[in-house]
Design a protein around this nucleic acid. Structure first.
Lengths: 347, 347
DNA sequence: GCATCCCACTGAACCGCTTCACAAGCATTC
DNA sequence: GAATGCTTGTGAAGCGGTTCAGTGGGATGC
């Protein structure tokens, strides 16, 4: 090693200590246990920190402490207000617990999901909250077994052995299907996909249940993503169908799809709800503002976020990833009936 | 130190090395320069990694490398689709550069802004992208002077000496104001706040310019935040005004406000655009879907995000925070005229 | 047959902070 | 006045990686 001056980045804790005439441990205490330091010393150290413009290095801190003080939150779609609200709930609860939130988006792609889960684990987050794309449950299990607590979001039954917070999507789907039937629909179409998403499967299953019971036909119009552009595509397709084949009721797997379908129908001159009734899922705030206010199935997104974070915190407390714990918190969905479905013998 | 078995977290790089019968440096190379390792060795090490379930420790890595490989992105409001789109643009560009994005929300509060900027700096992010709340420019300057490159988002003229990417909000405000005048409005109200936000000041200034030139009255109805609930409140107030005092044109500082104002007006039986024309700002995707499709001033949010990230990367490349560089990238806003303003002698 | 060069690999030093056993100073207590 | 207990401070030993000067040995050159 040459004696040359390395382009060291900034002042170190050690520099602060030297300047204040104390040991490094004392500076560390000033930073984290000011109560244990005599007032005069405290003042001297704080002055030194200010004068030098000292900024602690989080990586070094984390390395020696062993904990990161952060949790990872992985959602399906950062541009869907439902997940924004959910994330807001998580952040609120995390803030109260003095935890930072690392937010990432899988965009419904399992390769990105894998990538971000890896990053989270490498960052040694204290816990992970994830809306799984599906198909990565081995990775989730492995991470949990290595000691990182995980809480599944927006996931029900499957993947046993995991703690989860979700809405009963089968019931939600049933509510939507039943509502369309009550509105007089005889040909219902379910718009949504990919079916690798559990949410989609469950909502479809619930709708099918209601529809079957009523002896009504159900078609599945698949989408490759739960996004507005896919909704638009399907909406145009529906509008283009000959009146005989066209469904008279559409249940879209989320509001992004539903709003886009709604718009495409209106643009094509199809009347909503008279020709086609439309209902969505999530009840995002924009649903009520739509050209024809959109009926939807409400999920308590913010609450779910809060609750999930609280559960995660609980597992983080009593150690070891909570392998045993298999706990499901299930919220109940609510129907929000609006103009997009209200017509003949409206129930 | 007792000889007790510490509850060590997981296998270390050193354990992998031992198991594969190589030195730690070699394992490190397998991880980051696989080309420099002989195939047989590579295979052995990779096997050891898999068998042990080794997960690298990001903190340790960062500490010894000195770089974090991440940038910080601080936005005003995570629930505003405009910022979601912008963030998507940033993430896209960052991904291509192999940079992770730390996303945080100030919620338009300068205390949170300070907090997250501190965190970013402590995490030694390689750069920061920020939509400033206002009033924290000393902190920004300090951070930049200590060597972390910063690019300001959605900020124009002020804070010289900074690189920024923004839309010309004064022009945007002028467009909106002129459009209302063209629509025949004689009493224009500007809804938005707080004025500590530069965006608000500029949009108001632009509107005032257009309105003054036309000899039309302009009232400012302030809000404490740029959120839907504030919009609803003001919307109700407008609806409650006696017809004589009520503005006949409303320019809201963003679409969240505008959509809420629109809804409140409609609910109160005020006709849009006949009684009151409404125009927003940002042109979020939901604007076009509204009950009365909302006119708006479009900002190329995604593009701005991309561009900002690219600029930041450029500064990160040629070192030292880019103190000298004062570069402003200005996008031009576009008017998106829709039903909410289209009436009498519509321009 | 010897000097040279590469290649693959080694391992100790270092990144910047926290921790914790220990010590010093000073009051109290009996 | 020695024993006891607090309060305040000390500083070396990690935390788990990366780096890079160096080592050994086979291939190449002449």
């Amino acid at each position: 090693m040459t004696g040359e001056a390395r382009p060291t980045r900034g002042p170190l804790l050690r520099d602060v200590a030297e300047r204040a005439g104390v040991a490094t441990g004392t500076v560390s205490n000033v930073l984290h246990n000011p109560g244990k330091v005599a007032p005069a010393t405290l003042a001297r150290v704080e002055a030194a920190i200010a004068e030098l413009g000292y900024v602690p290095n989080a990586a070094a801190r984390q390395l020696s402490r062993g904990r990161s003080g952060a949790i990872g939150l992985l959602v399906l779609d950062a541009r869907n207000p439902f997940f924004n609200d959910l994330a807001a709930g998580v952040e609120e609860a995390a803030g109260q617990l003095d935890l930072a939130v690392l937010l990432a988006t899988s965009s419904e792609r399992s390769d990105r999901e894998r990538l971000y889960l890896d990053r989270f684990e490498q960052s040694r987050v204290d816990g992970i909250l994830v809306t799984p794309v599906g198909g990565s449950s081995k990775q989730l299990k492995a991470i949990r077994d290595r000691g990182t607590p995980i809480v599944l979001l927006d996931r029900l039954a499957s993947t046993p052995g995991f703690i989860s917070v979700a809405v009963d999507d089968v019931e939600g789907g049933r509510l939507a299907g039943q509502h369309l039937i009550d509105a007089g629909c005889r040909h219902v179409a379910f718009v949504g996909g990919p079916v690798s998403l559990e949410q989609v499967r469950n909502r479809l299953a619930g709708a099918r249940r209601a529809v079957d019971a009523a002896g009504v036909a159900l078609a599945h119009l698949p989408t490759s993503r739960m996004s507005a552009d896919e909704g638009q595509r399907v909406g145009r397709e529906i509008a283009a169908m000959p009146a005989g084949e066209r469904p008279d009721g559409v249940f879209a797997a989320n509001d992004l799809l539903a709003l886009a379908v709604l718009q495409a129908l209106l643009l094509a001159g199809v009347r909503v709800p008279d020709d086609v009734a439309v209902i969505g899922y999530d009840d995002i705030s924009f649903a009520a503002l739509a050209a024809v206010p959109l009926s939807s199935v409400r999920q308590p997104s913010y609450q779910m976020g809060r609750r999930a974070m609280e559960l995660l915190a609980a597992v983080m407390q009593d150690g070891e990833g909570g392998q045993g714990t298999s706990r499901q918190v299930v919220f109940m969905p609510e129907l929000a009936a609006r103009a997009s479905t209200l017509r003949r013998r409206a129930g």
